[in-house]
């Protein structure tokens, strides 16, 4: 499946095409992140039930603490 993540074209293969699996693919599951799919923020409790499909534009922002 071809999607755009944080502005970059990526090819990903997910066992089940959900946002939570996509986060796991990037080792971000359970981390402090905000996810936007096609311009809409996806609430945390809907990450497992929201599907990712070909051509989607996903933004993933991870909170970090250093400085």
């Amino acid at each position: 499946m071809n999607i755009v993540i944080n502005g970059k074209h990526e090819q990903v293969a997910l066992s089940e095409p959900t946002l939570i699996n996509l986060l796991a693919e990037y080792s971000l599951q359970g981390k402090s992140v905000i996810v936007e799919a096609n311009g809409q923020i996806v609430p945390k409790d809907e990450l497992a039930s929201t599907n990712v499909k070909d051509g989607d534009r996903i933004e993933i922002v991870q909170f970090v603490g250093g400085g």
Binding site: I5, N6, G7, K8, I34, I41, E59, I60, V61
Partner: peptide, 20 residues
């Protein structure tokens, strides 16, 4: 917007956060 980037992976993203 909430802005984030990764200079090693060449990614940049920006999310409108008003709804939060």
């Amino acid at each position: 917007e909430l802005v984030s980037f990764d200079l090693w992976k060449n990614t940049y993203s920006s999310i409108k956060i008003a709804s939060l």
